[in-house]
Design a protein around this nucleic acid. Structure first.
Lengths: 225, 225
DNA sequence: GTCGGAAACATACGCTGTGTATGTCGTATG
DNA sequence: CATACGACATACACAGCGTATGTTTCCGAC
């Protein structure tokens, strides 16, 4: 057993190089996957972007799917971090927190890569079962939590929570993919329209066309009566 | 120009044979695509199901994508026909018609093939832009029509209709895919839960847990106040 | 310091599957 | 009955994944 220093936090030069190429591969793969889709990208090209060969890819990842899995996981954790940070600002107000989280999520989807990667390619690349299991950990888990909080607060009748969460989940996914594919100049408008519609559907009532910093917050989620 | 009889409705024996194999190919492809996905099915296997070779496939269809396109279009028109028939029963009542259409659509999605084909494989096989354009003609067009009717009837505030339709569209798609993947014994329960949730989101208010033939119809869509 | 040894790649190969080009056979038509 | 065309089957070229096998470079021990 050599390389005993690996676990002490000190990285040998070889390890540093290796991690660098691995990171570079991930970055290149993310770009390619987001732009040309999973099936549309050849590992040869990914490797070429790094001035390497497919050998490097297959050294760091078991296969094409594993590479995508890594890219996907990276994108998801980054999103989750952003959304949690946005929600944490309103730790005292459930409604404001939900609204902030919602908007931050939609912003993530405006990032050209995220929507395509997570909502379009992932189910294909990973297969629906694994994709669903993955979302259970990320977006879906977060949504279910929020839904439960809103139900407890009385802002929403006690419907089957899981199915409700799934519906919202799918709704956000649709909005996300739509936003990801919308040309830049229209993004803001479409996003606002989605916020309105989501506010109506979740708040379960007509919503005044509040400005982005209106009295009920950007989502139009109405507080308790 | 020979075969002048082709346009008089009379089919020569050759044409009959040709159409038969074409139809058989479509049927076989539909099964394969639904079961193993687009990327997971080899044209070789599709042809083998017909006791033919890939030559036959490439004779009738330009390429793999074109074959899928034909299968997809067939599934969509069949669905549309069913839903329209279900809605036509309640020609006088907008709410009942919308409810019947909704439930029939979900039933279509319970068909093992439809959900997977249309909502999972189609965007991949056809590419997102073409898939979206296609849905514009089928499901989405129908939904937008219904939404407009509901808005006109005052059952729904005048939100951005197109975005609202897109949201509902995505919602139904999600329900469809979920139902398509749900094991048989749970299908009825999940479908009912979705009907409840959809009723809440669309009717924009709490919904009494009505039975399948309750006073407000199976969707829980409330009539005008 | 030098000497195994292993990690980090590169190179070479086989396989599967698509798309295309060419061949063959039957059938409709003059 | 000869000929042409449609409906396929066969054969081939090529791309892309996965694997097996080198080759180099660094690390650690003696």
């Amino acid at each position: 057993m050599s390389y005993a220093l690996g676990m002490s936090g000190v990285k040998s030069r070889r390890e540093q190089y290796s991690e660098a190429t691995r990171a570079a591969l991930l970055a290149a793969a993310a770009r390619r996957f987001a732009e040309h889709g999973f099936a549309g990208t050849a590992l040869e090209d990914v490797a070429a972007d790094i001035q390497a060969t497919r050998g490097a890819v297959y050294h760091h990842f078991a296969n094409k799917t594993a590479l995508f899995r890594a890219v996907h996981e990276q994108a998801e954790t980054a999103m989750l971090k952003r959304v949690e940070a946005a929600a944490a600002v309103h730790a005292d107000d459930v409604y404001a927190a939900a609204g902030a989280a919602l908007e931050e999520f939609l912003d993530c989807c405006c990032e050209p890569d995220y929507g395509r990667l997570v909502w379009q390619e992932a189910p294909l690349a990973l297969g629906w079962p694994e994709w669903k299991a993955s979302e259970e950990k990320y977006a879906f888990g977060m949504i279910e939590q929020t839904i439960n909080a809103l139900m407890d607060a009385g802002a929403m009748p006690a419907l089957p929570a899981t199915t409700m969460a799934r519906a919202v989940f799918q709704l956000l996914g649709g909005a996300g993919i739509e936003l990801a594919m919308t040309p830049d100049p229209d993004k803001i408008r479409v996003k606002d329209e989605y916020l309105q519609v989501l506010g109506y559907m979740l708040g379960a009532g007509p919503v005044e066309p509040a400005g982005p910093t209106g009295p009920t917050g950007p989502t139009g989620l109405a507080g308790p009566a």
